[in-house]
């Protein structure tokens, strides 16, 4: 892992101005931002730990806890909101027995919300592992989760 972090830092010329994109790369590699890697990163970039953690906790895109095998994201943009996104989120929270922003103990699902993915015209929309599912209804959302649980979702 150490080598990989070095390679990422190197690809940005060891420039601390690229802290946000570096963290993005680490997250896409590790699925979250592990604490020891953040400490290591601070050493690599020769910046205080506090700076790394302030940035990592400020931006919504970063997670400091491990995320599930499947990441379910419900769009809560205005257009989705008026078309019933809160009911979709309720359904998922109930079905997955998870609160938004958390990961289940079995590590299968993470339920997150996003403030608009810009596909407003086909809202309400939910993302399953970055795949867009448009024009959601309560029962369609149940079905999507049902098939994910069965494992027939690639």
């Amino acid at each position: 892992m150490q080598e990989e972090i070095k390679a990422i830092v190197e690809s940005y010329g060891r420039d601390k101005a690229f802290l946000v994109p570096i963290l993005q790369d680490i997250q896409s590699r590790c699925n979250y931002l592990p604490r020891d890697i953040l400490l290591e990163l601070a050493e690599e970039l020769a910046i205080p730990h506090s700076l790394v953690f302030s940035v990592a906790t400020f931006y919504k895109a970063f997670s400091l806890t491990p995320r599930g095998k499947h990441i379910i994201n419900v769009c809560l943009g205005t257009a989705c909101h008026v078309r019933g996104a809160p009911l979709i989120l309720d359904t998922l929270e109930r079905n997955l027995k998870l609160k938004a922003g958390t990961t289940g103990a079995d590590g299968n699902f993470t339920l997150e919300t996003v403030n608009c993915v810009g596909a407003c015209a086909v809202g309400p929309i939910m993302l399953v592992d970055e795949e867009y599912h448009g024009q959601m209804t309560v029962s369609k959302a149940e079905k999507v989760i049902g098939s994910l649980k069965k494992g027939d979702h690639s």
């Binding site: 943009g77 608009c116 015209a121």
Partner: peptide, 11 residues
């Protein structure tokens, strides 16, 4: 950084 929810012109 089109952050306004419900807007996707820039996209």
């Amino acid at each position: 950084d089109e952050g306004d929810p419900g807007a996707f012109m820039d996209r």
